[in-house]
Computed example of a mutant assay.
Amino acid sequence: MEEVLEGKDATYLLTDHHRLDKCIELLHLRFSQHAWEDILAIADHLHSLAEKMYNDAQEASLKKLPYLFKAERPLVFYYGFSYLAKGTALQKLRLYDQAREYILKYSELGWFSGLDKIGWEEVERFKFFAKANLYTNDLLSGKLSILPEYAQFLEDNPEELLPGLVTIMETASLHSVNVDDILEKFSEKIEDFGNLEDATNRTHYFRFLYHRAVYYAKHHRYQDSVQLILLFLTSYNMINNVDFKKFVVLFEVYRQYASNEQKEQYQNLFKELLKHEEGVSICNGDIRSY
């Protein structure tokens, strides 16, 4: 489905209902690639599709004609997700005021006509997502006074704790605020994050490590920062190349502050990575070909 953005004619070969689900698939792909500009375009396309189908369904209802909807989820899901995706992309682009507008759009979808039980459940889910994402957007934009309220929200909603702590660490780095008290508050639960196995939580966990490493470095806790970097790098078999490169760069930035033991651990890690590479070896700290 990559061709959807480059040439939308490919999308139009599908039924409208099928295209809704393909847009969702493509949005998930682009999220994983951090392709925020692409996401804005796909979200707009998804919204146009969902809005057209909603209007068609309303017209059919007025004429007392049947309207068969065949997508995998209720129509309100696609309508709300188009706003959620666009709001998230705008936030990632640091366009916080615009992002807030889109978060508010999916915070209350109860006006949507024709909702059944599953549809109302989707409306409630989007309402919760909007609450969490408003906190995120406001914190990243610099509204630091809500930090205590957000910490309480995370305590009341433990399923949001890991992504929420990513937001807090990113906020701390962006706005030079001390959040040691929050890290202490959730310290026991933070220790368990490394045991999470599903892909989404692993992604959140590695982002948490990255922003926490940057946070420690900004507070001159360099060896603590390096230790988190090494913790990430030792999990190289579970992460993608983009993340791995980011942490390698971070280590090199703070290499001068690493202890001899940490430098040795770093070198041993790369020895392990290279040992199966034909014609490459490490000798006295240098990479050599033979």
Rank of each mutant, 00 (worst) to 15 (best):
I103W: 14
I103H: 07
I103G: 05
I103L: 14
I103Q: 05
L104K: 13
L104V: 12
K105E: 14
K105A: 15
K105I: 13
Y106W: 08
Y106V: 06
Y106G: 02
S107A: 15
E108G: 06
L109F: 09
L109Y: 08
L109G: 00
G110I: 08
G110W: 12
W111A: 11
W111N: 04
W111T: 05
F112S: 07
S113M: 08
L115P: 04
L115Y: 11
D116Q: 12
D116R: 12
K117D: 10
I118Q: 14
I118K: 15
G119C: 11
G119I: 14
W120N: 09
W120Y: 12
W120R: 13
E121T: 09
E121C: 04
E121N: 10
E121W: 09
E122L: 09
E122C: 07
E122T: 11
V123M: 08
V123H: 04
V123G: 00
E124Y: 12
E124G: 02
E124W: 11
E124D: 10
R125Y: 15
R125M: 14
R125E: 15
F126E: 06
F128P: 02
F129N: 11
A130F: 02
K131H: 12
K131W: 07
A132K: 14
N133Y: 05
N133P: 10
N133T: 06
L134S: 03
L134M: 07
Y135R: 02
Y135F: 15
T136L: 07
T136G: 06
T136C: 11
T136D: 05
N137M: 08
N137Q: 09
L139W: 03
L139T: 03
L140A: 04
L140C: 05
L140G: 03
L140E: 05
L140K: 03
S141P: 01
S141I: 02
S141A: 13
S141V: 03
G142H: 06
G142I: 05
G142Q: 10
G142S: 09
K143I: 09
L144A: 05
S145M: 13
S145Q: 13
I146Y: 04
I146W: 01
L147K: 11
L147T: 12
P148C: 06
P148K: 03
E149C: 00
Y150V: 07
A151N: 08
A151F: 07
A151C: 12
Q152W: 00
Q152L: 06
F153P: 00
L154G: 01
L154H: 01
L154P: 00
L154R: 01
L154W: 00
L154S: 00
E155P: 00
E155D: 13
E155S: 14
D156E: 15
D156Q: 15
D156H: 10
N157V: 13
N157Q: 12
P158H: 02
P158Q: 04
E159R: 14
E160Q: 14
E160F: 13
E160P: 05
L161M: 05
L161V: 07
L162A: 07
L162F: 09
P163V: 10
G164W: 03
G164Q: 05
L165P: 06
L165H: 04
V166R: 04
T167D: 04
T167A: 12
T167C: 08
T167K: 07
T167S: 08
T167G: 05
I168R: 02
I168N: 01
I168S: 02
M169K: 05
M169W: 01
E170R: 14
T171Q: 04
T171A: 06
T171P: 05
T171N: 01
A172F: 11
A172C: 09
A172I: 10
S173I: 10
S173V: 13
